[in-house]
């Protein structure tokens, strides 16, 4: 029985087994490979997508749970005419990615944080941005989030 959901604004009927993690449905059934597999146990955040606007580690959510919900992946952030989301633009300006593998997840987490808080403080950034980056791009992720929300690049020490 197909699972009905919406991905990046498009209604889709998914044929995967209901226990399949959303991540693998996105990557293998829908072919949207911007969402990454890093650990499979909700530890790294590389697989972060939005489910009804909530940042969600898709490796640990069975696809049956997203029936009827609306999912956004990194591919869905650009506007219809291909313009990058302001957070993506900030990511390029700050030259954030190194290997880049974690960055789809980082950007999805950052977009959700900004949508929720408007102008996140350093403490809010610390609390929300728990995605791992082995390349150590955290300083630039912070810089990009601050820039995207009109805040100065250099944080006040002790604000966290």
């Amino acid at each position: 029985m197909a699972i009905q959901t919406s991905i990046n604004g498009k209604a889709v009927a998914l044929s995967a087994e209901p226990d399949t993690p959303l991540l693998w449905v996105i990557r293998e059934e829908l072919g949207l490979t911007g969402t990454k597999f890093g650990c499979g146990v909700a530890a790294c955040g590389a697989c972060t997508v939005h489910v009804d606007g909530e940042p969600t580690r898709s490796c640990s959510v069975p696809v049956s749970e997203v029936a009827g919900k609306s999912i956004t992946t990194i591919e869905g952030l650009k506007s219809a005419d291909g313009t990058l989301h302001a957070v993506q633009t900030a990511w390029i300006a700050a030259q954030v990615p190194q290997c880049g593998y974690c960055q789809s997840g980082q950007i999805m987490a950052a977009v959700a944080l900004i949508e929720k808080t408007g102008r996140p403080s350093d403490a809010q950034i610390d609390a929300a941005m728990t995605n791992l980056c082995r390349c150590g791009t955290y300083p630039r992720i912070r810089k990009a989030i601050r820039a995207a929300t009109g805040q100065a690049a250099v944080a006040v020490e002790g604000a966290a």
């Binding site: 293998e28 490979t33 990454k36 990194i74 591919e75 952030l77 990615p97």
Partner: peptide, 21 residues
């Protein structure tokens, strides 16, 4: 100079070995 590989790493289009099909 801005890194040439970065744009594809912010919109999900960069293809890693994991992504090949």
């Amino acid at each position: 100079m801005q890194r040439l590989d970065i744009p594809a790493k912010v919109d999900g289009s960069a293809q890693y070995g994991m992504d090949f099909a």
